[in-house]
Simulated assay, not measured.
Amino acid sequence: MMERMFLYDDTVQTRTRFVSFMGENHRFDLAVIMSDRYYGKHLVLDIQSSRFAIIGADDLDEPGYIEHAYNLNEEDAEELRSFLYEIVS
């Protein structure tokens, strides 16, 4: 049996916020994880779609980032982006 080579194996304290809200056309069920990792950015999991992204304020300003990360149309992405601005800024 081959010995496993770990690149890292850390345990960190996190704060997790579970939030669900209804947009105009789309329901969002999110887990927002905050920790010392990822340079102050948040790990945002969309529980329904099984998609996630590491998000900071700079990512929200990146055109098409939210649309691509969560496979959303522009309108739904803007609703999610608006919510995320409230918590990552």
Results as ranks from 00 to 15, higher is better:
1 M>P: 11
1 M>A: 11
1 M>N: 09
1 M>W: 12
2 M>I: 08
3 E>L: 13
4 R>M: 13
5 M>G: 01
6 F>T: 08
7 L>E: 04
9 D>Q: 09
9 D>P: 00
11 T>A: 14
11 T>N: 13
11 T>F: 15
13 Q>C: 11
14 T>S: 13
14 T>Q: 10
15 R>N: 13
17 R>D: 09
17 R>Q: 10
17 R>N: 06
18 F>A: 13
19 V>K: 02
19 V>P: 02
19 V>T: 12
19 V>A: 06
21 F>G: 10
21 F>K: 07
22 M>V: 09
24 E>S: 11
25 N>W: 00
26 H>P: 00
27 R>N: 09
27 R>M: 10
27 R>H: 11
29 D>G: 06
30 L>E: 01
31 A>E: 10
32 V>P: 13
33 I>N: 10
33 I>H: 05
35 S>Y: 02
36 D>M: 14
39 Y>H: 13
39 Y>T: 12
40 G>V: 07
41 K>Y: 05
41 K>D: 04
42 H>Q: 10
43 L>E: 08
43 L>N: 04
44 V>I: 15
48 Q>I: 03
49 S>W: 03
50 S>Y: 09
51 R>Y: 08
52 F>G: 06
52 F>I: 00
53 A>W: 12
54 I>A: 02
54 I>C: 04
56 G>K: 10
57 A>L: 14
58 D>G: 00
58 D>M: 12
58 D>N: 10
58 D>E: 13
59 D>L: 09
60 L>N: 04
60 L>V: 01
60 L>G: 01
61 D>L: 07
61 D>G: 08
62 E>T: 14
62 E>I: 04
63 P>K: 08
64 G>H: 05
64 G>I: 01
66 I>N: 01
68 H>M: 09
68 H>I: 02
70 Y>N: 01
72 L>Y: 05
72 L>E: 02
73 N>D: 12
74 E>D: 08
74 E>F: 04
76 D>S: 12
76 D>P: 01
77 A>V: 06
77 A>P: 06
78 E>P: 00
79 E>L: 07
79 E>F: 03
82 S>I: 01
83 F>W: 03
83 F>R: 02
83 F>M: 06
84 L>F: 03
84 L>K: 05
85 Y>K: 11
85 Y>D: 01
87 I>Y: 15
89 S>R: 07
